[in-house]
């Protein structure tokens, strides 16, 4: 056995047992590095008799190739073993709880409002806004509800005083005042919805709240009929409940529409009566009707030429129906445990 053979077997033995890449690098340095064994073998060549020089050069190179090849193999083996190890996944417990990611939320009323706004704007409706502190004139008078009309119960209206203002002010009891405001401002024909906050002076409980949200709808056009109203309401309900909903119109009295209706929808939650529909299979969903000729006149439109329909969607109620919320007071209560659910 030559010296070179001994060196090689020594190197191979150490490579074979090298525990990691660092150890391999060290061995590499030791044998084939700048000052390594191979380098010194090559450095010693000029001192050899010329006849041996070629052989010595070859052995040094063979040694180098053999060491590098062995290191490469060992490296691959180590990597393979490491992968195998990692694949064992020792100590992994998939049932440990993930870290909490707190997230924010849009208010459920806003979510449903947006959904409806998008539905209506896709059908050419404008989205309008109106003042929450409103003139008696728009909230009642122009909607065919003169003073002392039985439909105008003072108990339900928050009348307001505003320093310096002589107008009769109130917190709007519905989004309907925007009907006349829209007629005054826009050129017919037009379609509009008005989401917003409304107020009623009443004591609160799980199903009554003095502040809630509505969405008014108004279509002004020529030759608008009850049939169009039914069509529009069915489209609306399809948008809300994502399926066809049977509806029925029955007479309902609202002074600003004539004829006026209550629209009932076949209960989307049951087929044979449940707590939501109070066992009737119908839920009273929205008041609607053809715009009263007096309201058209108040809005500056000629009732012989123009007609239209209007509807008032109870947004708060719809949100409660959609999510099964049992207490209306949660909506404006600001409880994080409520909000986080949306």
């Amino acid at each position: 056995m030559t010296d070179t053979d001994a060196t090689l077997s020594d190197a191979l033995a150490r490579i074979a047992t090298a525990p990691d890449a660092d150890a391999l690098r060290a061995i590499e340095r030791e044998f084939v590095g700048k000052d390594g064994v191979v380098a010194s073998m090559l450095g010693a060549i000029p001192t050899l008799p010329p006849a041996e020089r070629k052989g010595a050069g070859q052995s040094a190179n063979q040694l180098k190739q053999a060491v590098l090849a062995a290191i490469g193999e060992r490296e691959s083996a180590l990597e393979g073993a490491a992968l195998e190890d990692e694949r064992k996944g020792e100590g992994f417990d998939a049932s440990l709880p993930p870290p909490r990611i707190d997230r924010g939320s849009l208010h459920p009323v806003v979510q449903v409002t947006r959904e409806l706004e998008d539905l209506f704007t896709s059908m050419g409706y404008l989205v309008l806004d109106g003042p929450e502190v409103e003139l008696d004139h728009y909230n009642f008078e122009k909607l065919n509800i003169p003073a002392d009309h039985p439909a105008r119960d003072t108990q339900d209206t928050f009348y307001c005083d505003s320093p310096g203002s002589k107008a009769t002010l109130l917190l709007r009891t519905h989004t309907s005042p925007v009907q006349v405001r829209a007629m005054e401002r826009l050129e017919p024909p037009f379609r509009a919805v008005v989401p917003g906050k409304v107020f009623r002076q009443e004591s609160t409980d799980a199903s009554h709240e003095h502040t809630f949200h509505q969405m008014e709808g108004l279509v002004i056009d020529r030759n608008v009929s009850v049939g169009h109203l039914i069509g529009a309401m069915k489209t609306l309900l399809r948008g809300i409940f994502k399926k066809d909903i049977e509806v029925r119109l029955r007479p309902g009295y609202f002074p600003f529409v004539e004829p006026g209706f209550e629209l009932d929808a076949r209960c989307p939650f049951c087929t044979d009566g449940c707590s939501v529909c109070k066992k009737t299979t119908w839920i009273e969903l929205l008041p609607c009707g053809l715009v009263h000729p007096n309201v058209l006149k108040a809005g500056g439109l000629d009732p012989e030429e123009w007609g239209g329909f209007a509807f008032g969607l109870g947004l708060s109620r719809l949100v409660m129906l959609r999510y099964g919320i049992d207490d209306v007071r949660h909506l404006l209560g600001g409880d994080l445990r409520f909000l986080e659910q949306f």
Partner: peptide
Amino acid sequence: YGSVPEAPLMGA
């Protein structure tokens, strides 16, 4: 009103 046929709104 149940016997009123549903009609689509017309117009642009």
